[in-house]
Nucleic acid binder design. Structure first.
Lengths: 251, 251
DNA sequence: CGGCCTATTGAATTTCTTCAAATAGTGTGG
DNA sequence: CCACACTATTTGAAGAAATTCAATAGGCCG
């Protein structure tokens, strides 16, 4: 699904508001992710401006937000749900480069076009700004660019960690690392971690870790056989021995 | 080698100046990389300030600029030479996450400490600023942060490309991709590309591509056997069939 | 010339993938 | 409510790719 086809408009169950703002920041201040999002550093005046300019988009699971080489015109903060970022080779091989969770942003491109695909893992809602609006507000509010720079650096650091995983870890280490990282990230978002919910299917895990579906499945089975984890359901993991899992995850 | 041990002071053969500035921008304007570096967007006033605050560091080949977990206190632009960025696993396995060429910067950390090692591939000189100075100038010159953000986004995009390579390409594709990318980057810096000089050893190529030294060597031999490249010397590559190499490089 | 380091080549082994089949879970329509 | 189909996941066996271990070749420097 293309940007232009994304549903736009008020969301009945969203705490983050709708377009018609009265130059107040009431709506943004009530937003569930505002304190973690890029806009957390803005003062009330700037936030009121953002509130006037934002749009809400919703995606159903597996819907696409944008694709590689689409013109980069918009910037999004995930409010609820999650996105999957991926790149493809011409023959269809796919590498998932990361997941975007609530409070995180997506859409700053290095050039005129996006460098990867962004799809919803599940029903997802986003707070959207045009890049031209964002640029303008950035010029008027230097702290915004500092904030975006810090968040982008943090993404770069995650990317470097993931390169180490992809290039130098074996299947067991990759899988253990994935489970530990997911647990940490889910815990940081104050979500329950026991059991840990896997929001993506085996194919997504495989394409994230640079493995095949079968190898991911076998590796999870092996962790289960060693009593390090249990798999009560396909998308649920109980971590029985976090020390052992962490040990594996670090190589 | 640690930051504090890096040689500092005037460089006889450097076009980019030394510490004692006279509030002019003469020295920076003569710098060989200034038009490509992050500071290219600064006006004369800001540049004069930078000129007062900068220091020149020199590293010999294989010397370390900083290590993972060192306190992040400084920011560097490569003037001449090249750096290698890497991360290590506890048992010594290494992943090279990128190379830093003249005009590019290094040192913006996501947190209090650096997230990777940075070592010189060869004799390298750098233009150094403390992060506190950089922050201050960034606050006074919003265009600086925009520029750093754009350059960081470009690094992130390269990192995502490299994840695709590490996770989903085979040895032949990885090696072809490496040669094509190096060629493009060297050409962009107006350096000769025929023969193409490999500034790093096989071990570095292997750790960059997530392969072993032996596999890199075998793959280069294979490309040579197919007349796609020639290897006149260990560190020189002639690309005989750029179309075929590009074809392989794209998967 | 000899030693040392890097790179190449060869053979055996391991890991992961590929191909194939079985199982489990989910939703639909009768 | 059950039979059926569909999909995702697991499991098994065979194969391929890359690694590991071992030996050789090529440069460079003293």
């Amino acid at each position: 699904m293309n940007l232009t086809r994304a549903h736009e408009g008020p969301l009945p169950d969203m705490s983050c508001g709708r377009r018609q703002s009265r130059a107040s920041v009431r709506i943004c201040r009530e937003c569930t992710v505002q304190t973690r999002a890029f806009c957390a550093v803005l003062d009330d005046a700037a936030l009121a401006q953002m509130e006037r300019l934002h749009t809400i988009c919703c995606l159903a699971g597996e819907e696409s937000l944008f694709m590689e080489d689409d013109a980069a015109i918009a910037f999004f903060t995930v409010l609820k749900g999650a996105l999957r970022l991926s790149k493809l080779l011409p023959d269809g091989r796919r590498q998932i480069t990361g997941f975007v969770l609530p409070g995180e942003f997506i859409g700053l491109a290095a050039g005129e076009v996006y460098a990867h695909n962004a799809d919803a893992l599940m029903d997802t809602s986003l707070c959207r700004f045009s890049l031209t609006d964002l640029d303008r507000i950035g010029q008027e509010n230097p702290e915004l660019n500092s904030r975006l720079l810090a968040m982008t650096n943090s993404n770069l650091s995650l990317a470097q960690d993931h390169m180490l995983l992809l290039g130098r870890m074996n299947a067991l280490e990759k899988t253990a690392n994935f489970l530990c990282s997911l647990r940490t990230r889910v815990a940081a978002a104050d979500q329950p971690i026991d059991p840990l919910v896997l929001p993506m299917c085996r194919a997504d895990i495989a394409d994230y870790l640079g493995l095949t579906i079968e190898t991911v499945s076998r590796t999870l089975t092996r962790l289960k056989a060693n009593n390090i984890i249990s798999l009560p359901e396909h998308n649920l993991v109980r971590i029985n021995d976090i020390a052992a899992l962490t040990q594996l995850a670090e190589g």
